[in-house]
Structure formats: C-alpha cells, structure tokens
Design a protein around this nucleic acid. Structure first.
Lengths: 128, 128
DNA sequence: TAATATAGTTACCATTTGGGTACGTTGAAG
DNA sequence: CTTCAACGTACCCAAATGGTAACTATATTA
C-alpha cells in the first residue's frame, strides 16, 4: 500500500510508459531546481510578482525563474495573471491543484529536517 | 509551516549552499530515475537480490540499477550485504532511515494518482 | 574444453537540465 | 532623444543524467 510499483497493478498510469508509478509523476512536477522554493513562497505569500520572486529567491536568474514558472503553469499548479499596464505587471498564485501539493511537500520537508539532523553532513550522493 | 524557504530561517540547512530548504535535500535522495521503484520493491519484499530487481524493474539496465543502489546505500537508505559465495550473492534491504521514507513516498503516490485522474493525460511539462 | 550463472565494471555516446549574457517591448519621466 | 522599469525571449555553452555494449571474475556443470 506504500509505493505502488510498475506495470500491471491498479495504480499503473494507463498508456504511460514514462513513469513506473504515480510517485514518479508527482516527482516530475515538483522536481525542477526552483520549484519547491517557488511553491513555498506562493503558499506563504498568496500572490507574488515576478520581481519579488526574483529578489526573494536570489540568486535565481530571470531566465530560470521564467522557465520554472512556465512549467508549473503548464502543469496547472500555478496561475499567471497579466495586467495590461506599463510597466507590465504579472501576478502568480497557486491553483487548487498547486495548493493541494502542501500535502506532499510537508512530509518531504519534515523528512529532510530529520535526515539532516541524524545522518547529517552532506553525504548526499557522493557526487560533486 | 509548509515548505520552509531558503537562507536565514530556522530550517535552512547550516553550511549548505546546495539546497534552499530541507525539501530539496529529500528530493535529491529520492530523485534518481529508479529510486522510488527500488524503495517500493524493498518495502514490499523485505530483501531482494540484484537479479530479482533487474527482472522485476525491467527494462532497467544493470548499470543503472547498480548506480541507483550505490547512491541509496551512500545515503544510508538501503543496506547491501555480500555473501562470499560463488556465484556471488548480494542482498539488499531497507535501513530504518529508508523505511521512514514511507511517510514521504506515500503522499507522493497519493497525489500522483489524484493528479492523473483529474488533470490527466500527459500535460507534463510541455517537453518531449 | 567450454558454457553457465551472478554481480558487477568500463568506455563511450545521447539527452536533459541548468545557467550566462545580451537583447526586446512599452509608455512615462527627465 | 534618452533612460528607466518590469517582464520577458533568444542563443549558446557546460554539467548532470540516462543508456548501450562489451568485458571481468570464479567455481560448478556438461
């Protein structure tokens, strides 16, 4: 009942050869370099403008921010609203779907804190 | 209380410039292509040998499997036991730390199932 | 003598992801 | 006429990740 493996089980994603289970589908959507940070910010602030995020998430670059926001929007996790003003104004906020991610991001964060406190120090993956 | 952003907050990881929050630390450990599937299998089966996983996770390749298992071991999530026999025998199982990941993988899986059922069809990220 | 089984390793290539720098748009302010 | 603010896009490069095929070791079996 925990992770639900690949093909042939009730949770396999029909017609999808890309993931082996729903877990990977989720990971693919929150896996970008700045995505959890962005989702975090929006969850806390409600709405935010491009410039605000750029400053808050520094040293993210405009390009990376735009890219991550686009992907999150394409996945229906955030809403982008453009105001036809000059200078331009664009506001981002979570959709219901994006808000529902709290349920998964919370445990991720909790585990991360515990992990860092016990195993501690960047054993990570042996890379770098 | 949800995602906990970067630098300067109580959950920032000390001396670590690699992640912005504990969530990313977790993601880095479960983010490999076959890792959730492997953790899944081990959670269900208890212990497994290399060959078993190779068959069960097909079409994973030996190289990828070895690589993912090595990383999981380095991160303290699984235990690798070698029996000095011929032909060789190696057995893998979850550590306590690895077992505790159920808490985070479960919600990931649940969200993935719901996501697929609602937004459905691979909107994914616009790539591919 | 040669094939078998197990659990890898190594070299090499392709794809994906992340990142840097420069440029574009628009109307108002100086 | 030039500059600024706000929000991007285009182009190009580097690093990380995923994947394929060939090679290794050794006791046992045929």
């Amino acid at each position: 009942m925990t992770y639900e493996p690949n093909e042939g089980n009730a949770n396999a994603i029909p017609g999808n050869t890309k993931y082996h289970n729903p877990t990977e589908a989720t990971l693919e959507r929150i896996g970008g370099k700045w995505k959890t940070a962005i989702l975090c910010l929006l969850a806390e602030q409600g709405t935010m403008r491009n410039g605000e995020m750029l400053r808050t998430l520094s040293p993210v670059t405009q390009k990376m921010l735009t890219q991550q926001l686009k992907e999150l929007e394409a996945d229906g996790l955030i809403l982008r609203t453009v105001f036809s003003e000059v200078p331009p104004k664009v506001v981002y906020e979570l959709t219901d779907s994006g808000r529902s991610l709290g349920m998964v991001l919370d445990p991720l964060c909790e585990w991360g804190k515990r992990f860092v406190n016990t195993v501690n120090q960047d054993t990570s993956t042996g890379k770098e």
